[in-house]
Design a protein around this nucleic acid. Structure first.
Length: 343
DNA sequence: CCCGGCCGAAAGATTACCTCA
DNA sequence: CTTGAGGTAATCTTTCGGCCG
């Protein structure tokens, strides 16, 4: 698996995929994992603009984090809301349907006519039932049920069973928090989208949802989780990097220690002028991560781990002793002063 | 200009489901 | 067949920034 690490690309255009863009399976071969360390704030100007422009669209989604399919699929779909039964939000660990006190395979009672407004209003945002009850989005021509969805899968039978289970979900609207596995195509497409932009504005969300035959909420959740996974991976990478840094520093410290002892031994035995030379140490500016050579009166004060000297204010102790790999390596010299000092 | 309330979006944390060894 | 681990969709909570009165 290839690990692609993109070190910041904030200037990347915030475009959106064309509506009929096909999933490029060739490109997605090395899907791997594209990380951006750049500062890519949650609200770029354009994003903000888009957000504002589509505020009305989004606001139609009803209560927070609840997607209303009728808001985007037009009037062809009727929104049926079930009478809210007091569903305890999961009590047992291995939540089977029996545990929850209802059968997920049983059809729910027919919705009361014109229950739309009342039920929607009464629907608690924390009710686990609300999202499922709106799960009518995939009714009709669901791609998820297509056999090619498992393309390249190991087992057509398993996939078929999976798909049939999805179909049954669509049938009974699955009261339980039924987990729908996204197809490989859907995942690949989402992955491609994520590569282009790791956040979505409402329009993009709707477009993606339509294209993938998912609910916008699902797309949103997928992006949330994807960002979380990315961050987790980044943390792991950082951790590995810091570990290596630590090892390197430890080794360097050991080497310098040894060198110091040799110098002391030399001092005691011969050449009285030798120690007149100041020791040279490499220190790193914590803010800009540049490395500078500094001279000190006594080398031991710099390299001895048990030194009683307090850390310099100019170079406070940092948990990140070494700079990450930078695109433009440089070092502090007098000819190239610290950026902040230049001003 | 400052303040507080409201709202939406995103992150973070957690839960629950599913698959597989 | 059972079980535990891992992956991940889904949910809930917290945080943050913008807007408005």
């Amino acid at each position: 698996m290839e690990l692609g690490l993109s070190l910041g690309d904030p200037s990347r255009p915030f475009g959106f995929l064309p509506k009929n863009r096909e999933v490029n399976n060739n490109n997605s071969q090395g899907l791997g994992f594209c990380m951006s360390l750049g500062i890519n704030g949650s609200g770029t100007g354009r994003q903000q603009l888009e957000r504002e422009k589509s505020t009305t669209d989004e606001s139609q989604e009803g209560s927070r984090n609840r997607d209303d399919p009728t808001a985007y699929i037009g009037s062809t779909l009727q929104l049926d809301l079930l009478p809210l039964s007091p569903l305890p939000r999961h009590t047992s660990s291995h939540g089977s349907s029996e545990v929850r006190g209802f059968d997920v395979n049983r059809l729910p009672p027919p919705p009361p006519p014109a229950a739309e407004d009342g039920a929607a209003a009464a629907s608690s945002p924390n009710s686990g039932a609300s999202s499922f009850q709106m799960d009518l989005w995939s009714v009709g021509g669901s791609k998820r049920g297509s056999p090619e969805a498992g393309g390249g899968g190991n087992d057509g039978g398993v996939e078929a069973e999976r798909e049939s289970s999805r179909a049954s979900d669509d049938d009974d609207n699955g009261i339980a928090r039924k987990k729908l596995r996204l197809s490989k195509e859907q995942s690949a497409y989402l992955e491609e989208s994520f590569k282009e932009h790791n956040t979505l504005n409402p329009k993009q969300k709707l477009a993606l949802a339509k294209q993938l035959n998912l609910r916008p909420r699902q797309v949103e959740v997928w992006f949330q989780n994807r960002r979380a996974r990315t961050k987790l991976k980044q943390t792991e990478v950082d951790c590995e990097y810091l570990k290596r840094c630590c090892e390197t520093l430890t080794e360097e410290n050991r080497r310098l220690h040894k060198e110091l002892q040799e110098l002391r031994a030399l001092k005691n035995t011969s050449n009285p002028f030798y120690m007149q030379l100041p020791a040279t140490t490499l220190t790193m500016c914590p803010s800009c991560e540049r490395v500078a050579a500094t001279t000190t009166a006594t080398a031991s004060s710099m390299v001895t781990p048990n030194s009683t000297n307090p850390p310099s204010k100019a170079t406070p102790a940092s948990p990140f002793p070494l700079a990450r790999p930078r695109l433009y390596p440089f070092s502090h010299t007098q000819s190239q002063p610290h950026p902040s000092a230049a001003s």
